[in-house]
Amino acid sequence: MKYVLVSTYPKEGTQNIGDKLIEMSTADAIRSFDPTAEISTVWRAEDWATVKDTIADADHLIFACLAIRRNMHTIYPYLHHILGSGVPVSVIAAGTNLQIASPDMFKRGFTAADLDLLKRLSEAAEVFTTRGVLSQAFCDEQGYAGARFSGDVAFLDSRYDGWTFSRTERIERIAISDPHHGEVYVPVFRTLVTVLRKLFPQARIDCALHGVNPAIEAICSGIGVAVHPIYLEPETGLDIYEKYDLHAGFRVHGHVSALKRRIPSYLLEQDGRGADYGATLSRKITVPCYRAAQPAAEPRAVAVQAYQALIARLVRPTPRSVGPAKAKRFSAPSAAATFLGALIAQDAREGFSRFDGLEADIMSFNNRTRAAIKQVCAGRSTP
Rank of each mutant, 00 (worst) to 15 (best):
S265K: 03
S321W: 04
Y277G: 00
K326V: 15
R283S: 02
A336I: 04
R300S: 08
A301P: 03
D271R: 02
Q305G: 10
Q308M: 13
L268H: 05
A297R: 13
R329T: 13
Q270K: 05
K328L: 12
V287S: 08
K328H: 11
I263V: 14
Q308L: 15
A301I: 11
P299A: 09
G272I: 00
S331H: 13
A292L: 10
V322I: 15
I263H: 02
G323P: 06
P324A: 06
A327K: 06
S334A: 15
S334P: 09
A332G: 10
S282P: 12
Y277R: 00
L259V: 10
S321I: 13
L281W: 07
V315C: 11
P264V: 05
A327M: 07
A297L: 14
G278E: 02
D276Q: 03
R291P: 01
S334T: 14
P319A: 13
K326R: 14
L268R: 04
R316W: 02
L310R: 13
A336G: 08
V287E: 13
Y266V: 06
A336W: 07
L314P: 03
S257R: 01
R313M: 11
G323I: 11
A309M: 08
S257P: 00
E269W: 05
V315G: 05
R300L: 15
D276R: 00
R261E: 03
R283E: 02
R283Q: 04
Q294C: 11
R283M: 05
A258S: 13
P295F: 07
V287T: 14
P324S: 10
R313E: 15
A325F: 06
I311L: 15
K328F: 07
T286F: 04
Y307P: 00
A275C: 01
L314I: 11
P264R: 06
A325M: 08
V302C: 09
T318S: 12
P295S: 07
A279D: 04
A296R: 12
I285D: 06
R291M: 15
S334H: 08
A293D: 10
L281Y: 12
V322S: 06
T318F: 02
A301E: 14
T318P: 01
Y307T: 12
S265Y: 03
P288C: 06
R300D: 12
Y307D: 11
S331C: 09
L259S: 00
A297H: 10
A258T: 09
